[in-house]
Amino acid sequence: MSKRAKQATDRAVLVNAMRTEQKRQERRRTALVTAVVVVLVLVLGGVTAAVLVRQQARNSELAAAASAPIAGVTEYPNLARDHVVGAVTYPQTPPVGGDHAETLTNCGVYTTPVKNEQAVHSLEHGAVWVTYSPDLPADQVAILAGVVGKNSYGLLSPFPGLSSPVVASAWGLQLTMSSASDPRLPAFVAKYANGPQTPEPGAACSGGVGAS
């Protein structure tokens, strides 16, 4: 074999060797990338699954809390629902339903009393009206605001002359409490805010008067 032919053969062997090595490295990179992608998919899938499991558990807890009976709730059935003009005398303090004003009180957190007749209209739309004695300590009021304020059907206001420090009312239902920390309060709000007792379910608790 001539020297030139031998050099050509050596170059061909070298080129083939280089190509073989390049392909091997490409296969390694592909395998590495594939492995990384698989690991990321598994990790993300595991995180997503864990989040979904926790969310499902939380939803189950909320559903169970919403369906469970709440001790101490008094029921007032067969309430009137007419729109009237002027003041109404209610048998409950605060009222839990009955004839009411044509305009409702917008749901929200209030630091001054609201009109009974307008708040009762809010109850008709599914509001839970939480009232408290005006001399309730500020930290207790803050607890109430935290529970009520995050619900679009929550209404909070002071109410002079309450027989208990805190009273929660929904249409035809009422719960008296001695403390804002009573665990029945969030359960009452969760169960009855636009709940099954609502005469006009789905109606908005807005578009009326007042601003939180």
Rank of each mutant, 00 (worst) to 15 (best):
D10Y: 02
K23H: 07
K6R: 15
T89V: 14
C107Y: 01
A204E: 11
P134F: 09
S60D: 15
A87M: 09
E61R: 11
L175K: 09
E200N: 12
A80I: 01
K115R: 08
A17I: 04
E102Q: 11
S212Y: 06
V189C: 03
T103E: 06
T74A: 11
L62P: 04
A71E: 13
Q56D: 15
A63F: 03
A138P: 02
A49G: 12
V85D: 11
Q92D: 04
T30N: 09
M18I: 14
E61F: 03
G202C: 02
F188G: 04
C107R: 13
W129V: 08
R81D: 12
K150D: 10
A101H: 13
V128N: 03
S163W: 00
Q25W: 10
V147M: 09
L32S: 07
V53H: 09
E26L: 10
Q174P: 03
A127R: 04
T30M: 05
A190Y: 01
S179N: 08
Q197W: 00
A180S: 13
V38I: 15
G108R: 06
T20V: 06
I143S: 11
Q92V: 03
V37T: 15
V148A: 06
V36T: 08
N194M: 01
A35I: 06
L162Q: 07
S164G: 00
S122D: 01
P95T: 06
I70T: 07
V130H: 04
M18E: 15
A65K: 07
S164H: 15
A211L: 11
Q25M: 11
V84L: 08
A80T: 15
E124A: 14
L44T: 11
A127T: 07
L40D: 03
A5H: 09
V53S: 10
R81Y: 04
S67E: 14
V41N: 04
T105K: 05
A8G: 00
L42E: 03
V43I: 15
L123D: 04
V33C: 03
A193M: 05
A35V: 05
V39Y: 02
V209S: 14
V96N: 00
R27P: 01
L136H: 12
D139S: 13
V37D: 03
L123Y: 02
D10A: 15
K23Y: 06
P134L: 10
T20Q: 13
V189H: 01
V209G: 04
L173S: 01
A142Y: 00
V109Q: 05
T48N: 12
S157V: 04
G146H: 07
V33K: 14
C107M: 10
S169P: 03
